[in-house]
């Protein structure tokens, strides 16, 4: 998708600003020249971009293996679904609520496990994601609708005034959120917070001995990542108008992981490329749907062999974007 170049370096196309302008222009024109089907493809690209960005905080910036990210996504989606269908709260108002709910959930479940390292943390997060999914299937307090999920979620609106009810509006909603997220994350990368995250990824002991509160910044990354996944969950729930546990499987978490690894850990343009690959490949490979997983597997193996840093690794130092 064109937008994957939005943070691009302009070396190949003249100035960086020029490229950025062209991408933004293409982004605005695109939905008016293609049909609903292709707009929806671009919408799901946006959802995966947002989810990739959210996991990138935890996995890319801090280097924490989180294979249960779909759990946070689910918390966001179900928060919106339940509060909207049961209490009629407008979906757009629930956007921050879903973010806070997922962030709070991350704080509660990650506090006791945050000191675990590498593979150990990875395994616990897999368990966390699965527990969320199984809990949703078991229909606690008759809230989640069991395996069928929750139906009849409204269009995003602010109580009837501003209603997002067509693919093109959804397209602009998700990409506005993605754009704002990117701006926020780029600023975080270039701040005390982003540097602290990177230091922890590089060497946890040295980070602590340089004055960084390792535990605090790891938890912060999990909470922010979960909150963004919660936002994605909110938009996803209203787009599909229903949520069910099968949308939040371990496989989804693996996909998010692939998005970050394909693009390059800690690289925002990389995440966009990764999200494009994950959401567009299945469309391109539709005639070979049977072999889709095989293509994925081969692509990942080749990536790890020939470009372990990702397609677009983050550059540092002079001239880095």
């Amino acid at each position: 998708m064109e937008s994957s170049r939005s943070q691009g370096s302009g070396r190949f196309f003249g100035s960086r600003q020029g490229t950025l302008m062209a991408v933004v222009a293409a982004f605005f024109i695109y939905p008016f020249v293609v049909g609903d089907y292709h707009i929806d493809i671009a919408f799901f690209f946006g959802i995966y971009a947002l989810l990739g960005l959210s996991l990138n905080i935890v996995l890319g910036e801090v280097g924490l293996f989180d294979l249960g990210h779909a759990g946070f996504y689910a918390i966001g989606a179900y928060t919106t679904a339940i509060l909207n269908t049961k209490y009629g709260i407008p979906v757009l108002l629930l956007l921050p609520v879903s973010a806070v709910a997922a962030g709070l959930f991350a704080y509660l479940v990650c506090s006791p496990i945050i000191h675990l390292r590498g593979d150990y943390l990875c395994i616990v997060t897999i368990g966390m994601g699965e527990i969320v999914r199984l809990a949703l299937i078991n229909n606690p307090l008759d809230l989640t609708g069991g395996p069928n999920g929750v139906f009849g979620i409204d269009f995003p609106s602010l109580g009837g005034i501003f209603v997002i009810d067509s693919p093109i509006k959804y397209y602009f909603l998700i990409w506005t959120v993605v754009a704002l997220t990117i701006i926020g994350l780029l600023r975080l990368q270039k701040s005390r917070i982003g540097r602290a995250w990177n230091c922890i990824r590089e060497d946890e002991v040295a980070a602590g001995s340089s004055g960084i509160d390792v535990r605090h910044y790891k938890l912060l990354a999990f909470m922010l990542g979960a909150a963004l996944a919660g936002v994605a969950g909110n938009i996803y729930a209203s787009k599909l108008m229903c949520v069910s546990p099968e949308s939040f499987t371990f496989w989804e978490s693996c996909l998010f992981f692939c998005i970050v690894l394909i693009g390059g850990m800690g690289s925002i343009p990389g995440v966009l490329i990764g999200a494009a690959a994950i959401s567009l490949f299945p469309e391109i490979l539709r005639p070979f749907a049977m072999y889709r997983m095989m293509f994925f597997g081969i692509a990942m193996i080749l990536m790890m062999m020939f470009r372990p840093g990702g397609v677009w690794p983050r550059k540092r130092g002079e001239g880095a974007p």
Partner: peptide, 20 residues
């Protein structure tokens, strides 16, 4: 124990973290 994939300047700025 440095932060190998960060620039020298970023390494040193990390030391300032607790002063902000």
């Amino acid at each position: 124990r440095l932060f190998p994939n960060m620039t020298c300047l970023e390494n040193v700025v990390a030391g300032q973290h607790s002063r902000g």
